[in-house]
Structure formats: structure tokens, C-alpha cells
């Protein structure tokens, strides 16, 4: 079996371990804990009074513009990492290219700030 698959199997089995831990511990706890549900107990918590309206109420997601910017900058981070590893070999050429790239990004961020899209109203 190649090292490549060993990496994936290791990561996969550790991710599974997290879920298995939850299942096992909850399974053990199920043997010990009581279970006598009542309508009052099953009610949504709202500081002791009966809940008003629905829990899934309409709410204003203020940061959706932040979300769009996040996607742009996160993709850019993916480009920066390979450059960061190979910088020694790329030398001055790679450095100048990346400085231009970072400069454009910084300008974009400043444009967004000046435009007021990052203001939280």
C-alpha cells in the first residue's frame, strides 16, 4: 500500500474516531441516564416563559458581503501557499509577481472599506 493511501486512511480513521467516541459515550450514558420526557421539559427554552413565535424566526444575516469577500480572499490564500514554499527557487521574479498580486488585493480591500461595505449598521 502506498504512502499516499496511508495518509488518507489515517486521516479518515481519525475523523471516524471522533464520531465513534460520541456514539460509544452516549451509548454508555444511555444505560445510566433516566428518560421520562414531559411536554413542559420538551419545550424550547426562553428564560422560563412560554416561547413567543417560532424558533426559526427571520433574522438579518448582516455579514453576507463579508462572506463574499471571504471567498475571494480564501481562494487567494490557496495561490499564496505554493508560492511561499517555492520562493527560494523563484527568487526575485517570484517575489515581484507576488508583491504585485498582494498589492492588488490590498487595493481591493481598501476599495471595499472606502465603499463602506464593511461597515456594520
Amino acid at each position: 500500500m502506498s504512502l499516499y493511501f496511508q495518509d488518507y486512511i489515517t486521516v479518515g480513521s481519525f475523523a471516524a474516531l471522533g464520531v465513534v467516541l460520541v456514539i460509544v459515550m452516549l451509548g454508555v450514558a444511555a444505560l445510566l441516564r433516566p428518560s421520562n420526557p414531559s411536554p413542559a421539559k420538551q419545550k424550547t427554552y426562553e428564560c422560563g416563559v412560554d416561547p413567543v413565535g417560532e424558533g426559526w424566526h427571520q433574522s438579518y444575516v448582516r455579514y453576507y458581503v463579508f462572506g463574499l469577500l471571504f471567498v475571494i480572499f480564501d481562494v487567494e490564500a490557496v495561490f499564496i501557499f505554493p508560492w511561499a514554499i517555492k520562493l527560494e527557487d523563484l527568487g526575485v521574479f517570484g517575489l515581484v509577481e507576488m508583491l504585485i498580486f498582494i498589492w492588488i488585493l490590498l487595493m481591493g480591500l481598501i476599495f471595499a472599506i472606502r465603499k463602506g461595505v464593511l461597515r456594520w449598521e
Binding site: A30, R33, P34, S35, P39, Q42, K43, Y45
Partner: peptide, 13 residues
């Protein structure tokens, strides 16, 4: 202590 606590899932959840 948490092992012995009831596992409550709200009705609306």
C-alpha cells in the same frame, strides 16, 4: 455526573 443526566431533545428541534 453528566453521564447520569437525561438527554432532552426539544420538541421543535
Amino acid at each position: 455526573k453528566f453521564f447520569q443526566k437525561e438527554d432532552i431533545i426539544p420538541e421543535d428541534a
